[in-house]
Structures are given as C-alpha cells and as structure tokens.
Amino acid sequence: MYTAVPQEASNFVAGVDLAFMVILGISAFFLIGLTVVMIVFIHKYRKDKHPKAVQNEGSTKLEIIWTAVPLVLVLVMFYFGWMGWRPMKNPPDEAMHVTAIARMWNFQFQYENGKTSDTLYVPLNEPVILDLVALDVLHSLYIPAFRVKEDMVPGQDKVMWFIPGSPGEFDLFCTEYCGLEHSYMITSVIVMPKEEFDAWVLDTTAVEGPAAGADVSLADQGWEVLRKNGCNACHSQDGSKLVGPSYLGGWGNTRTVVTGRDEREVAMDEEYVMRSIYEPNADVVKGYNKGLMLSYEGMVSEEEVKLIVEYLKELNE
C-alpha cells in the first residue's frame, strides 16, 4: 500500500494519503464499532437469555442524531477528498511538457526537442505536464506511486501533471480497458536528477531514425522502427497469431485479403507493406478484424518503411 512508496514520490502523495487516512479511519471505526454492537446484541438478547422482547417503535431523537452525525462526518471526508485532489487540476504555468501518446497497446512519450521514448523519463523535483493524446480508443495513464491517473480520450486535449519527489523507477499502467493486450500496456517512469535527465534528453542519437549509425544493419534499423512504434504488441516475430498477422512467413508470398467486401489475393511486396502501414484498413488479411489498426502516416516515414521491408526480407530468408 502507500507504506511501500516514499511519501515524497510526488507532490500529491501527502494530500491523497491524508484523505485515505481520514476516510478509512472513520470507516474502520464505524465498521468495527457497529459490528461489535451487533454481536453484543445478538449474544445478550438471544432467546434463552432474554425470552421477552421489549417493544420500541423508534425514537425521533435517535433518528436525528444518526442522520446529523454521519452527515457531518461525510462532509469532513468530502473536504479532505476535495483538498487532496484540487492541486491535481491546477498545473503550473511554467513546466516541462511531454506529450504522452497512447494507442493499442503502448505508450510513447515525446519530448519538446523531438526525442521519443517508450519509457517516461522525468527530472527530479521539476514539474512535468503530460499532454495526453489517445489515438484510437480510451486509455488511462496511471502511476500508482504518484497517486495520479487521468483518462486519455480520443479527440480531447487533456493534461495531467506532477512533481516527482524521489529518484527511482515506478510502474506506469493503462487502467482503462482498451482491448486484447490491455494488461501488457505497461511501462515505467524513471525519475533521475536534473543533470542526468538533461544529458539523457539531449542525446538524440540513440533512438532516432536511419542516421543512427552506419554500423547497424538496415534490417536491424527496421526492427528498431517497429519496436519504437509499438508494432510488436500486435504483430509477432515467430509466426504466432496476435491481433494482426505475424511478420514471419509473409514476405514474397501471396495472401488473401478482404478489400471492402471482396476477397482477393495479393503478393506481399514493398507497395503492399506501405499500404498496410498508411491505410491499414484498405486491405485486411482474411481472418483478422478491420478497424483495429490506425494509419501510421506521418509517424513512420517512407524511408522507415523501406527499413521495415529490409527487416521483413531478412526475417523471411
């Protein structure tokens, strides 16, 4: 529970946990108290000990008391809940922005300098605003240790924010059910000191595109494109059927696709691969569902498609 997490993991932990303590404390008091009273009554007034019931139709005084007291208590609980939550809705004006992009079934984080990552790196003690983007269906970004969660709704611009307060690695989950691989839509937040973070965010060589280095083979660069864009959540390397068809066994062969309502045979060539990435619902391989994949036009460049093709060639050699 929250004991397992440092209290300063984010700027919201203290407020949220205080609300937990107040509400759970009052609740535990009533649960235990009322249960004990009930058990005492059942024991004390059981038939053989108390053969004649004493009738009592009610008491207006008692009804008023046990309406008024809980009313005050729930308003207290509401207050702590409200106070713990209010700062979450008030992001600071000056803060680092990271765009969090969710799609079935991975997160991608884009930094202001264009760097992208599938893990969320953030600097210690600096406010971070996440601009939430959902590309396909509802998702929800949840960092239990930080006590933050916000749904990601397609077509809606939303933000969430926090100030990480202790270095380390924390779980980040998708908590809004989003289909087949929902439970695998998890990654981490890595909180690091400001200097380390700055060094990391400025180092754009490791991840970006074909220029990454001449010593890496084209096929390997293609694999990196697939990994970075989260393709592997739905397409396997080993021929197993996931949401979409596997990379294995496709290249150079023909396959049956459904175009509109008609079935046709197509050969898998470069044109086909590009079409599948940019207009994924135009031809859907028979046996798979339409509408699950989004167009990657603008996210995967034509050059990157060529790298993917190199990868597919090598895999199917």
Partner: peptide
C-alpha cells in the same frame, strides 16, 4: 446479520471512491 456486516464493508469502501483524491488513485483498480 452477515448481510449487515458485508453491506457495511461495501458501503464504507464506497466512501473512498466517492472522495475525489482517493478515487483518482483507486478508479479502475
């Protein structure tokens, strides 16, 4: 009698879900 006990647990745990700060943490868990 056991209904009352179980119902109290169900009802009281609803309070942390009704409060905003705690619900943000617990929603969809």
């Amino acid at each position: 009698a056991s209904f009352i006990f179980i119902f109290m647990i169900g009802g009281l745990t609803g309070l942390v879900l009704g409060a905003l700060a705690t619900d943000v943490h617990l929603h969809d868990t």
